[in-house]
Amino acid sequence: MKALVSLAAVLVLLLAAYVGVHLGDLRWLFGVVVPYFAAAVFLVGIVVKVIGWGRSPVPFRIPTTCGQQKSLPWIKQDKLDNPATGWQAMGRMALEILAFRSLFRNRETVLRDGQLAYRTNKWLWAAALAFHYSMLIIVLRHLRFFFAPIPRFVDVLTNVDGFLQVGVPGIYITSFVFLGAVTFLLARRLGWARMRYLSLPADYFPLFLFLAIGCTGLWMRHIDKVDVSQVKAAVMGLLVLAPHPPAVGWIFYAHLFCVSTLLAYFPFSKLMHLGGVFLSPTRNLANDNRARHHVNPWNRPLPVHTYAEYEDEFRDRMREAGLPLDKE
């Protein structure tokens, strides 16, 4: 049911583009107004959200560690899993962001011969890695629409991605890795009772949206082709604030509308882990609670009354009572 709602939402997006561009002639709406609006929401939304995060106090360090803490010199510290300094914490963050180390540790509990057992489960990690990296490459490949002249590295990347040279225009490896990974991530939520129970429309919607974006993209590259040079001219027009929608088929507008929806939805969704991953408190803080004093920023400035001051105040009475004194 939750999945169906999300699927329906994505189908409505596609239908809107079809009705708007194929039956009607709302190219200005779908090709100029909506993309500008979506880009603005994306940018402003992310900036506002991250500034909000930046104004929040740093939490007390949570030492969820997987290795030996820095201790006596002859005990070997696990620098990456239990960092003691900011640089070591950066190493842990780099592995987290570039290699999804937390997912790599994913365990699942199973019942084996009536006994509870744990075993490693790397599927989620592998699919997530495939998904994110292929998306990165796809986004970088699309830079050919955003730069004139095109930076050399984009051409190189495109050629490497298309090195199989299957078909004309050639297929890209990442297109299929991307769709395969999204399909797996979706099947994981749909086909596994535990995951289905946990999943919300907000989990399904981005997956269906990515599927729609990928399929419309492949469709117009390999099946119902569009005039790419008009598309680039239109993208560049948007960039230099001289917008004009391209006179191409609705499938391009469906692609664009889905991407616009993704951008506008982004700051309000779980996809904000794009920025949030950098602020994971259990990963980006060094485990130095015992070495450095953590000052809670919302502590009121309290007047401190040290023991020395206390003794000064009550010295006479303490002497009378026969109490020991530090200073006579």
């Binding site: 991250v50 500034i51 930046g54 104004r55 929040s56 106090p57 740093v58 953590h294 000052v295 920023p297």
Partner: peptide, 11 residues
């Protein structure tokens, strides 16, 4: 403690 500077730098 705040890390506002670093976070705004990243942003």
């Amino acid at each position: 403690m705040y890390d506002t500077g670093k976070i705004l730098g990243g942003l």
